[in-house]
Design a protein around this nucleic acid. Structure first.
Lengths: 216, 216, 216, 216
DNA sequence: AATGAATGAGGTTTCATTCAT
DNA sequence: AATGAATGAAACCTCATTCAT
């Protein structure tokens, strides 16, 4: 009776939207400051909630970080796995799609900051490192690897050591991510990431084709 | 009987050796933990002194870090500048020497951890970033650049945009440093850094020669 | 049986009362120990809270001190200004009221310790000195001065240099404050501050009257 | 043989001069900063010696301070006692001499800073307070008192409570010292200390004369 | 579900004092 | 007699986490 029904409540039920907002805020803060230097208070303020609210959704800072990684990176890997499982064409085409999506969805976004952050701080947070290795690195490598195996099996690629080749293929992408997200003003403006990715993938695919295949 | 004559004194005076020991301890700690996460107490313990002793030699944490950088990295750049100034042979040979020394004296040592650290934490410590940019990055780039200019002037290299080329030349080395000093177990064991450097430099030099020169 | 139901909680929420309690504790500690020698931990303990709590309400030690001064002294000056603005009677009466209130509300209370503290430590804390000069000394002097100007304008006082007279009027009060709050056991017990104030004001007012006025 | 005899030695034997230099440096520093805020390192630097040297002459900071007080203030009291003991004229003349000397030798010099310092910090250093009370305040009061007693005994002064009168006589001098050495910019420039002292002493002596004496 | 006041361990820095040289 | 390197006990301040409301 006192308050009209449409009176703005002190806080708003967001229900399922809430966690997403918290994760978005956390991502931004982690990328800007790194893991250790990120203050939960800033994450909360950025999400427009109170510090305590974070703890309703995430056990602690590490779990919040893991959730960010799961939400954005692990999820993307899952989608890529799906693509691989369903794909029916030439493995070279598939590999190109996977690598380009990696760049577009992660490398070219603020998510690349997570990669940088992990390289920098993993030493100080062994639990996080363990988690990231299992959930991201190993799983990601497995994904690339599986495409290579598929390619060899189908005769799309010439036979090779797929584990080594996985490293060879991931390294440039990781490096480009570090590069574009580092403060270091090493005039990378000279290089267009998109062009770099195109060149790199073209070269790689060419090198993977069987000896008798026509150049891609 | 009570006190053995060689009872160790409460502390030992080290005089001139001290600063070096402190810097060595600090370097180790910074590389292992990063700047923010390094506790001065750990640096002190590692050097076998008390916390207060650090402050006899360095004004504060930032100055300690700067001293580490000056002692090891800036100093090395200075030596390289000397080499460039005195060198009399072909610029390709000089460039090779400079790049290999960079790798051998910094990239392949724990000093590469400083580079990694700066990429990771510069955002959080603007003063440090400023210092590092002026003392290391700009000065280092100027050094490489000067070799290229020299090469063009002498006809050792074909004409090119030396600033862009400086980026092109530094990028792979920086990346290799990041790579080999990152926790990320991206099976880089497959690649021998030395071989990588050789290959990279060989390629670069070839590309820099004037059109009519015999392949290196 | 194990835990009595009325077990006291780890901490108690005080909400709006808190700042006042903290300021009271801080005032007590500052007056007892001085600014530099006051440890925030003691202030906290005195207020029955933890060290960290202080920082929820005050940015740092200096801000805490300023808040104490504002809360008690600046506030009192404001009230006095109000009185002056609204007063309608003889300026001598007004001056007497202002000076007596100064003594009663500040000089005779522990707040006099703040005055003593500022005299002692201003040299070591330039920011504090600056603040105190602007917020207390200049403003207080302006207040007295305005009463004198009003008195001259209304013909209540004979013409005189109001700035000099302001000094003449404030000096004895400040001195009495120092005196009664100093440890120095210079048998001031012989003098009753109240009587001293009365005598001083009586004399001052007499001296300020216009030549032809009947002695007060 | 190696070093010519007149080679400047690493340090110079000053023998008895040393302590005086240290005390002078300490006095300056104590007056500028206060007791707690004075760093022994600054005292040492000011005296041109090392920190350790201070401890050869003074057990610790408190003893150093006591020595300063003894050297300058207690010593002056002793000289004044001597004067009183030997004086043969009218007690009014003697009292005037004693008070003026107090002002000239202490009040008008940086030594007045010691008085200010004691008022401000005695609470925090009970041992110092105790020392100062016994050696300076009580002894100083006894000195004044003795002059009053002598005056009454000789019929130079009318009978009165000499302890109370001692307070009455010392208060204005102490206040003037505080005043002139405080940062508080309470335009005391309007008052010339010398004139103030003259006026005060004149008034006091007049009040002390026996009823039938001719005005001084 | 949400808040935000409260906590307290942990980090950097200062400085009186000690002691090997 | 003199030095000055070394110590270590505080002091200020931060922030992840808890919990009464």
């Amino acid at each position: 009776m006192q308050a009209p029904p449409e009176a703005k409540p002190r806080w708003e039920r967001r229900k399922d939207a809430r966690p997403q907002e918290l994760l978005a805020a956390a991502l931004g803060q982690f990328v800007e400051r790194g893991f250790a230097a990120t203050r939960l208070e800033d994450v909360a303020r950025r999400a427009g909630v109170s510090k305590g609210t974070l703890y309703l959704y995430f056990e602690n800072k590490e779990e919040l970080f893991k959730a960010v990684v799961r939400e954005h990176i692990v999820h993307a890997i899952g989608a890529a796995e799906q693509t691989v499982a369903e794909f029916e064409g030439h493995s070279g085409e598939l590999l190109r799609a996977i690598l380009m999506r990696w760049w577009d969805q992660i490398g070219a976004t603020e998510l690349a900051g997570i990669t940088k952050l992990m390289m920098a701080e993993a030493n100080n947070f062994p639990d996080l490192a363990q988690f990231y290795n299992v959930e991201v690195i190993e799983r990601g490598n497995r994904l690339i690897s599986s495409v290579l195996v598929r390619g060899i099996a189908r005769g799309d690629f010439r036979p090779h050591d797929t584990d080594v080749m996985t490293s060879v293929l991931t390294a440039p992408v990781l490096m480009l991510m570090m590069w574009t997200h580092s403060f270091l003003p090493c005039d990378m403006s000279a290089v267009d990431p998109q062009a770099y990715m195109e060149a790199f993938i073209g070269m790689a695919l060419n090198g993977l084709l069987p000896p008798d295949a026509p150049a891609a």
